[in-house]
Simulated scan of single mutants.
Amino acid sequence: MLDRIKASLPSLAPAEQRVARLVLADPRAFSSLPVAELAARAGVSKPTVVRFCRSMGYDGLSDFKLKLVGSVSEGVPFVHRSVDADDKTADVLVKVVDNTVAAFLKYRNDASSAAIERAAMAIAATYKTGRRIEFYGVGNSGIVAQDAQHKFFRLGVTAIAYSDGHMQVMSASMLGPGDCVVVISNSGRTRDLMDATDIARRNGATTIIVTASGSPLAAAGHIHLAADHPEGYDRYSPMVSRLLHLLVIDVLATCVALRLGSALPPRLKEIKQNLRSKRYA
């Protein structure tokens, strides 16, 4: 919850920013003080305090205080707010969107541009030398790997995605120096991906890892693109992690596109023109 407030600060009105800073300065005191005292300490009106709570996606001051107490007492930020069984559609909309926006803003603030630069240069160099570019992922991350293949295919980059563990191991065994593999994982603890990464690295291929910091897989590759989020990797239906991985791939694909030179824009223009016949006027 506190991380989410920090990430939302730039988008808040000046008066609401003062309330936010009051929360961040002493969350325990904020949760126990009456609205009049909170307004006086922040130098705002009482309606502004309530408006701030609603801007953060809560029903009002009481709901905000309740969640704040839980966040402080548990010591874990309520960035990923679970949807309750009695939530209305509007509540679900706010919670899902806010969870995603908070994760994106956190990634924007925490991402290493140097690591992204290294990864983009490695993929661009592999493309220019005609070597192999591959994407690995299993389960939900396997779908992201397929999306990555599609994004790079549109750039004219020949790539392939594997979501089967046996295929990953076999393909990694055929990689060599100059090849590049991007491994995507939510948990960073999938055995098949660890095995394929180790094989590819031993064979001299450049390994780029998109996964959570501190995981075994994060340390197994040459370049780590951290994808940290508040969603546990054991969730049965992950949402934020999938969207964050897609965002990382979008950033990486854009950086690679800028390094492919002047030949790319005409090619993309031709693809767009050729697709016009596939659409209704």
Rank of each mutant, 00 (worst) to 15 (best):
R18N: 10
R18Y: 11
R18M: 14
V19R: 03
A20G: 01
R21Q: 15
R21T: 11
L22K: 09
L24E: 09
A25E: 11
A25F: 09
A25T: 08
P27F: 01
R28Q: 13
A29Y: 10
A29K: 13
A29Q: 14
F30E: 10
F30K: 01
S31Q: 06
S31N: 06
S31M: 13
S32H: 13
L33N: 07
P34F: 02
P34Y: 03
P34V: 08
V35S: 07
V35C: 11
E37W: 15
E37D: 14
L38P: 10
L38F: 12
A39C: 12
A39E: 11
A40E: 09
A40N: 10
R41V: 04
R41N: 08
A42L: 02
A42H: 03
G43H: 07
G43Y: 07
G43D: 04
V44H: 02
S45G: 09
S45H: 14
K46H: 08
K46S: 13
P47R: 02
R51C: 04
R51E: 00
C53S: 11
S55H: 08
S55D: 06
M56I: 06
M56T: 13
M56R: 02
M56P: 04
M56N: 02
D59L: 13
D59P: 00
D59C: 07
D59G: 13
G60H: 06
G60F: 11
L61Q: 03
L61D: 13
S62I: 04
S62Q: 02
S62Y: 01
D63E: 06
D63L: 00
F64L: 01
F64D: 06
K65I: 00
K65W: 05
L66S: 07
L66E: 12
K67G: 01
L68A: 15
L68F: 08
L68M: 15
L68V: 10
L68W: 03
V69E: 02
V69A: 00
V72F: 08
V72E: 00
S73N: 13
S73H: 09
S73F: 14
E74I: 02
E74T: 14
E74H: 06
G75S: 14
V76H: 01
V76L: 10
V76W: 02
V76P: 03
P77A: 00
V79W: 04
V79S: 03
V79R: 03
H80T: 02
H80C: 00
H80S: 07
R81N: 10
V83A: 14
V83D: 14
V83C: 08
V83P: 03
D84N: 07
D84Y: 07
A85T: 15
A85E: 11
D86Q: 13
D87H: 12
K88H: 12
T89S: 08
T89I: 12
A90F: 11
D91Y: 15
D91M: 12
V92K: 11
V92L: 15
V92R: 09
L93K: 13
K95T: 01
K95Y: 01
V96I: 14
V96W: 04
V97Q: 08
D98N: 08
D98G: 04
V101F: 02
V101R: 01
A102N: 07
A102V: 10
F104C: 06
F104E: 01
